[in-house]
Design a protein around this nucleic acid. Structure first.
Lengths: 195, 195
DNA sequence: GCTTCTAACTTGACATTGTCAAGACTGCTG
DNA sequence: CAGCAGTCTTGACAATGTCAAGTTAGAAGC
């Protein structure tokens, strides 16, 4: 099935090969030709399925957002606790590093791709559902509480992946996150606290 | 002074040109030859000063960390309030986007470069000084409070730069951050809260 | 003032890369 | 069985990072 002219599911094979390659050298160092070689096809085969390099990375990112949404939804439905959603967020970054690294690098992607937008919206919805913020309102135009938890968890994941945290954190990142996230509060706060 | 054989301060000119280029297309799309052309020198001139492409980006990142440390220190000494340090953090990401984008992309840099380490350590120290966390201890191996504020502010900046925030946030990011950061608390919390 | 030396920069070359155009193969539809 | 459309290959091109060798300029030594 592999060495026939018609591959069968080359698209799938190319995405898998791309994920492997991203896992080894990061998304910005991805070589289309290397991916093609890994999948056992000619160097121009990827272009037929994905248009260009950004197209391939976009497909990887879209798949990543879908899996990401699944993971967040699962964590939320399991316990209904925000902190477990945050832990799932970080766990996904660690366990599916190539996906995560690709997802949040918009300059490498086709931001207007419909599949990417769909999957990314799905992840955003799952995240918002699990953000643990009681009320939507309170702030004009955005939900400060949801943004706080999202920012904290995302920043934690980014700094962790970039190697900016001390060994004690890297030894058990999930436990560290639970410790760190305890410094979030979601109770109502006055808009302008008296000085 | 520009079209002489010996440029005078080509190193400086190349870094400036690189910052410009990064500002236009991001650090991963940087072309050494384009930078050289921008500075009016031959395509191989950068190699002499920086070794390779990662070397040039490392120099940019090091300079970025230095300016970053300056900005954080200034904000801290001005008011002594953590929230102002956080605001300076985000303001730096916006006002010096090319630097910021380069600084936190370790796979594009020479992580063992001594200048980079020095500047990065300086920024880390400035950040820790301004993290607004009263006590160092409480946690084994790391300071959960400091990590919380760092993660929140860094995640906010990253998500903002990646365009993941609603328009209301992008209209006045600094004000939004102050709103968001209000959900941090630094009072002593029990290690294992009773269930 | 002249040579010499060394750092700064250029020139030329090479392998690798993304992308495009043209062609070849395959399996399905009529 | 003939055509056809989608799938993949082949060949080419310009652009890129990097290296080796050569050239220039300014400082040091006499």
């Amino acid at each position: 099935m592999t060495d026939r002219y018609h591959h069968g599911d080359l698209r799938r094979a190319l995405i898998d090969a791309a994920v492997e390659a991203v896992g080894e050298a990061g998304p910005s160092a991805l070589s289309l030709r290397a991916v093609a070689k890994r999948a056992g096809v000619s160097h121009a085969a990827p272009a037929h399925h994905f248009g260009d390099k950004a197209g391939l990375l976009t497909a990887v990112a879209a798949e990543g957002f879908d899996r990401f949404a699944d993971a967040l939804d699962l964590a939320w439905k399991d316990t209904g606790d925000f902190i477990d959603v945050g832990a799932a967020y970080v766990r996904f970054a660690i366990d599916h590093r190539p996906y995560f690294e690709t997802m949040f690098r918009p300059e490498l992607l086709h931001g207007d791709d419909p599949e990417l937008r769909r999957a990314s919206d799905r992840a955003a919805a799952a995240l918002h559902r699990g953000s643990g913020v009681p009320e939507p309102g309170e702030s004009p135009g955005f939900n400060a509480g949801a943004l706080a938890s999202w920012s904290l968890v995302h920043g934690f994941a980014e700094l962790l992946m970039a190697g900016n945290f001390p060994p004690a954190v890297r030894a058990d990142p999930e436990a560290a996150l639970r410790e760190v996230a305890r410094h979030l509060r979601f109770d109502r706060t006055p808009k302008h606290p008296e000085p």
